[in-house]
Design a protein around this nucleic acid. Structure first.
Lengths: 177, 177
DNA sequence: GAAACACAGACTAGATCGCTCCGCGTTTCA
DNA sequence: TGAAACGCGGAGCGATCTAGTCTGTGTTTC
């Protein structure tokens, strides 16, 4: 299992759709169906993004989520931290303090400061975090935008609109039937 | 669970002892007991380090492991790769290809090249790997060496020697008894 | 008042991790 | 010569985590 989980992947994909449709609130179910992933799983993701201040939620019928700020000001690190929570790359078990040579009388120098191995792992983690912080949702949206034809954005808007219409139609049918 | 597992931590700690005692073959049991960790678990680590060419093994009584090359030429990345194997930071599920708007007719542009999210994650992983590759076992040994008193190295050698003696004594006792 | 939302919590199947145990072949040495 | 200490491989086991489901509560719209 990878360190950066499927939740992060789904979250970023969803946020890209929100960046594309900034004028509309999209429900977690719409976002899931649009991408062919589990609606109930996506529904568990968004409260985390909301608590992190990445999206804002609106309740009730026609409710859903919007980006809380521009995509250029949301980094991948923001999303990873929101969904994964504090999840260190390396979990130091302070093995240096268990050395049998010390035989119970642990000298101060042995546990003074950060374990050198731990320190190296923290540097590696920091390098990873800085790389994630250097990429924003807007960067990724631009990359995708350069590949997609102009008609794609319209097709997405139409799909979202079609969903709302379909729901209204169902309501109307049942109301009349 | 952290991405870099306990196996990596144990492995690096063990290799540091091998770097300190380059003239002696140390068994996996000695290394484990010296550090107060599970002998059977450490024993599962070393065949991986041996296959990766980091240590050389010698069989039979008085056998054990030595570093295959100088500690200055063994990086943390070498050890991580040896023990973890290929373990990506992020596992791309190609969600971009599932978009409901495509409705089965997946356009070529949609899956052309590497997924932009995946690419960003690969950059982050690469940053982490470069950081790990920049630290050698000798770097860490130096850090520890500056903290430890001169007597420590001798104490370790004595501990290792004491182990061998104790085994001989046991053999002698049982042979005579 | 029903439907579609958000949100929280309990729950489950499956994978992985840390670790143990066993058996086999090799080497040493009394 | 045979027992003990090695390395090595595979089976297995409990704990934890992930991905995903389900149920229930409260809110808003129509």
């Amino acid at each position: 299992m990878a360190h950066l989980t499927a939740g992060v992947e789904y979250g970023i994909h969803c946020l890209l759709w929100l960046a594309l449709e900034r004028d509309t609130s999209l429900s977690s179910r719409d976002l899931a169906d649009l991408q062919g992933v589990s609606p109930s799983f996506v529904a568990k993701l968004f409260p985390k993004l909301e608590k992190a201040g990445i999206v804002v939620a609106s309740n009730g019928l026609r409710g859903g989520y919007r980006l809380a700020r521009s995509a250029a000001r949301i980094t991948l690190l923001d999303v990873v931290d929101a969904i994964e929570g504090p999840k260190p790359l390396f979990d130091c078990q302070e093995i240096r303090g268990r050395c049998a040579v010390f035989d119970g009388a642990l000298p101060r120098w042995a546990t003074n400061g950060v374990c050198a191995i731990h320190a190296a792992m923290l540097r590696a983690e920091q390098a990873m975090r800085e790389s994630l912080a250097a990429t924003t949702l807007a960067d990724i949206a631009d990359t995708v935008g350069r590949k997609a034809p102009a008609s794609f954005s319209q097709a997405v808007t139409a799909w979202v609109g079609g969903r709302t219409d379909a729901r209204s139609a169902r309501r109307g049918t049942r109301g009349r039937g």
